Simulated assay, not measured.
Amino acid sequence: MYDCILVPTDGSREVERALEYAFELARTHDATIRSLYVVNAAGYGGLPMETALDGVSDALRDEGRAAVDRVEELAPADVTVETKVLDGAPSQVIVEEADPAECDLIVMGTHGRGGIDRLLLGSVTERVVRRASVPVLTVQVDPDEVDDRSEEPRLAAE
């Protein structure tokens, strides 16, 4: 059913909960995991010097490389992982990368913000869910539960 599962990462430990689901699905369907980090340097465009922007961009790329390398480290030996670090608006790049010709499923963590937090901060996951042409599996990744989670992954509704 799935040949390629796209798993965007921001490098946080919370994303590891979503990875558990992705790895299990990859095993079940003999699918490849494509780990993606999106460098969103647009917010740094107002810096006064071009060299400062280059330095920030390099730092963000290094952070991205570390994030996708961590996915490779966590992957079970029987799961193939490909990695990409791309530039752009995160939700747009994720949707484009998951074009049906590339990936069959997106697995993303969601921090579960609601109300005014979601209104003010927006949600990359929500924008991806609304725009993606492939199914999106969202996994609740509450930072307070990262250290307390059980051995078996559970759906947020459980």
Rank of each mutant, 00 (worst) to 15 (best):
S12R: 03
R13Y: 14
R13T: 15
E14K: 13
V15H: 10
E16N: 14
R17T: 15
A18V: 13
A18W: 07
L19F: 15
Y21T: 09
Y21S: 09
A22E: 10
A22R: 04
R27I: 11
T28V: 12
H29F: 10
D30W: 05
A31I: 11
T32E: 10
T32M: 14
I33C: 05
S35Y: 08
L36K: 03
Y37E: 06
Y37R: 02
Y37S: 06
V38L: 03
V39G: 00
N40K: 00
Y44C: 00
L47D: 05
L47H: 01
L47N: 05
L47Y: 08
M49G: 04
T51F: 01
A52G: 14
S57K: 15
S57E: 15
D58E: 15
D58S: 15
D58Q: 13
L60D: 01
G64Y: 04
R65F: 13
A66Y: 03
A67I: 03
V68D: 06
D69L: 01
D69S: 12
R70Q: 15
E73M: 02
L74I: 05
L74Q: 12
A77M: 01
V79W: 02
V79N: 06
T80F: 03
K84N: 05
K84W: 08
G88S: 03
G88R: 00
P90D: 07
P90T: 01
S91M: 02
Q92P: 02
V93Y: 00
V93R: 00
I94R: 01
I94D: 08
V95E: 01
A98S: 15
P100G: 04
P100Y: 02
E102H: 14
E102S: 14
E102R: 11
C103E: 06
C103M: 04
D104V: 04
L105E: 02
I106W: 07
V107F: 04
T110F: 05
H111F: 05
H111R: 11
G114W: 06
R118H: 08
R118W: 09
L120I: 14
L120V: 13
L121R: 08
G122A: 08
S123C: 06
V124A: 07
T125D: 04
T125S: 12
R130Y: 09
R131L: 10
A132W: 01
A132G: 02
P135S: 07
P135N: 09
P135V: 11
V136F: 11
V139Q: 08
V139D: 08
D142V: 10
D142S: 14
P143L: 07
D144H: 14
E145R: 13
V146S: 07
D147A: 12
D147L: 11
D148W: 12
R149L: 09
E151W: 13
E152M: 08
E152Q: 09
P153W: 14
L155M: 13
A156V: 10
A157N: 10
E158T: 11
E158W: 12
